[in-house]
Nucleic acid binder design. Sequence first.
DNA 1: ACTATTTATCTGCTTTAATAAATAAATGTA
DNA 2: TACATTTATTTATTAAAGCAGATAAATAGT
Lengths: 195, 195
Amino acid sequence: MDLQAEIGKRLKQARTAKALSQAALAKLAGVPQSHISKIENTGVDLRLSSLTELARALDLELMLVPRKVVPAARSLIRQAQPTPISLTKLALRDDLAKLEKLTDSVVREHASSKNAARLKSRIHDLLRVEISPSALGAVRALNEQLEALKKDQNIQRMNAVMQDVDRLRNKFAHLHPDATEEGPRPAYSLEDDDG
Amino acid sequence: MDLQAEIGKRLKQARTAKALSQAALAKLAGVPQSHISKIENTGVDLRLSSLTELARALDLELMLVPRKVVPAARSLIRQAQPTPISLTKLALRDDLAKLEKLTDSVVREHASSKNAARLKSRIHDLLRVEISPSALGAVRALNEQLEALKKDQNIQRMNAVMQDVDRLRNKFAHLHPDATEEGPRPAYSLEDDDG
DNA sequence: ACTATTTATCTGCTTTAATAAATAAATGTA
DNA sequence: TACATTTATTTATTAAAGCAGATAAATAGT
């Protein structure tokens, strides 16, 4: 990949990381939106002045670094980025929120069903447990099953879901034996427990 | 100072540090010499491609660094530079070489003078001692005196110089008592004794 | 489906870096 | 001083970024 494309990619990454649209960045950096699109997609042989304006707007600074220092500098930059695990944690949060919503939908659609009420109870038990980001896939699978249940309540599928819920809950309840005994502890947290 | 000028200055510094002429760098980087002159002196709003070619030729790399990481990165870069003390050591070497030359000149011009012969002997004693870079100023002052002696031998000035030479030698001979007893040990060395 | 937002693409014009040389001026050395 | 090397300045031309908008196409949300 050539440098222009690389810089363009880096700028796009930084922009999206700050949840800015191209138009918003255009305003901040004093560069037309159409130009930003080109820079991000086809690579442009930017002038220093344009690059530094864009960088400034994205809280970046252009530096000339001695080649032998580059690995160390890269390492510094990497440390300052959100880690993949943090991103997975964010994704897990989203999917757990979705799980709760889908459960409510299923219960609402099948209000008279005892099974539905039981399912809801199971799901809520699960949401009270601290779930590791490694369970992202399993949570997603549950969500898919619930989507299907929403459309068509099937007793067998519902039982299968409840079993999966129980299995998942048991997996993480064992890791935290106090979890079931404490009060309403949040099932997930955004706090950084790296330390 | 604006960024273009700053980059130009940085590039000049890197070039001279590598003892490259503008023409030599021009060849390495594939940029005309005339352009390099302009970049270094008036600042040019360079294109990314040009800047990276110049940087590459100077063992530098362009990086986009998050603002909060910049101080740390600067620190890394500073560590990778020759330290002021190393530069002072180089300067001392130059001035000691000059001292030796000037002495020879003075002696040559006043060949029949006993004082000149004595001075030469004193200077050679001094050059056999390990002199610290902190003595750079004193060595320079001696050189100035010798420049004056070259033009006009003055008995009083010569005596003053000899006293200064003795004083300087005594200062560093005390730090290394073995220096006067060992064989012809070099008076100075470029080796890095930081470790 | 409809609407709002975002991004990609296009047009026409201006500016300036880049290109290719040449040479004047400055600096360094013997 | 003479000569070699280095740097600064100049000329003419070309390419492409930059500027100013406008709008088509894609995406996201309800």
